[in-house]
Write a protein that binds this DNA or RNA. Structure first.
Lengths: 200, 200
DNA sequence: GGGAAAATTGAGTGATCACTCAAATGTGAC
DNA sequence: GTCACATTTGAGTGATCACTCAATTTTCCC
């Protein structure tokens, strides 16, 4: 009776991503995964090596999406600083039931990781560092375009920007209204825009 | 052979607090708890009703400590705004191996809670709301003392302050140096102080 | 000191955990 | 058409999960 239809790896990973994002690594059981991917244990272990490997793949997937999203927002903006501000404002426009409102998966993973099973936490940390590096590159570019003063510390600004983003994501995960979230996002966005050197 | 010595409830709860704070609810097993509290399962269930109840008690304990800490910092300060700024700066002075550096337990619990087992998340959320209410009271007091302009929105300022604190705690949980953390804390503290209305 | 109450003990409960593998079946080369 | 291979299947693995309880020992009142 076996061999129903070959699984769709992309769809499976998307389903696993949604599941892990919602429930986290530890609270997600193989039963949950079987149901979400519509796969039996054997298939799951043939396709991915273990629960941990599968989680790692979904984490990478999540990172790629976030990263691509950030990069494209920056590219679409008139300037680096404008792009950084726009990216913050986008948060406020997310619908209340959007999965993004359940806080950044990287942050959840980092905070949820224990020291004896440190691999996942370290992985999440590395991805966050890559995001920070991308943000630092944007601030650096702003410097070279004369948007920021030459003495600005791009690395520090990037760390603070990422921290603000984390805090905003945390606010979003609470039960606050869209208006309140929009106000917070607007404040942070204006803080970024206020860094701009008045030119001529 | 039973009846070694009666357990010390305060010491047991402190040990449980440290354990749950580090590992989180799901990743902590009863075996871990038995070892940390030096109690056998029967005693644990006689003293506390369940793992969940025990976690609830430790969460309350954590909240009480944080709350008392916040209130005493405010009382020791020359003014409400000064106290709020001081509380932020204290973060930077924490040693690298302090348990406080492993991020706020309330935040970790809230982010780690799943929707089907929502009780713990809601509890953490309520405690966070109480902290925010305490912060709002401080901003309100600052208004009435003329430290803040009359049109200031204490509730909003409190939410933003709490978000900043969360972001700072997240930065602290990463591998950043004490100096970097101090710079971030100083920035946030000065942001609070900058709200002060210049009087005469 | 004697006896009832209180409290700890730790082996053991069924359930669930992540995971395995022999069997069954679809797939593609020839 | 046939056969070798790749892949799915799902019952079943031992381990560990949160939790229970009869037995045992200490405490404390008299």
């Amino acid at each position: 009776m076996p061999r129903a239809q070959p699984y769709d790896r992309d769809a499976a990973l998307d389903a696993a991503l949604t599941l892990f994002w919602r429930k986290g690594y530890y609270a997600t059981s193989l039963k949950d995964i079987e149901a979400a991917l519509n796969m039996k244990p054997g298939s799951i272990y043939a396709a991915f090596n273990s629960k941990e490997t599968l989680f790692g793949l979904t984490l990478e997937r999540y990172f790629r999406k976030q990263h691509a999203d950030f990069v494209s927002t920056l590219k679409a903006a008139a300037s680096p600083l404008q792009g950084l501000a726009d990216y913050l404002r986008r948060f406020a426009r997310l619908p209340l039931d959007d999965p993004q409102r359940s806080s950044c998966m990287l942050v959840k993973t980092l905070l949820g990781a224990t020291e004896q099973d440190a691999k996942l936490g370290e992985l999440a940390g590395q991805y966050i560092d890559q995001m920070i590096a991308e943000m630092a590159a944007a601030f650096e570019q702003a410097k070279q375009l004369g948007e920021l003063p030459g003495e600005a510390d791009a690395a520090h600004l990037a760390r603070r920007y990422q921290a603000d983003l984390t805090a905003l994501g945390f606010e979003a995960s609470r039960r606050i209204s869209r208006e309140e979230l929009a106000v917070s996002a607007e404040e942070l966005a204006q803080k970024v825009e206020a860094m701009r050197v008045r030119q001529t």
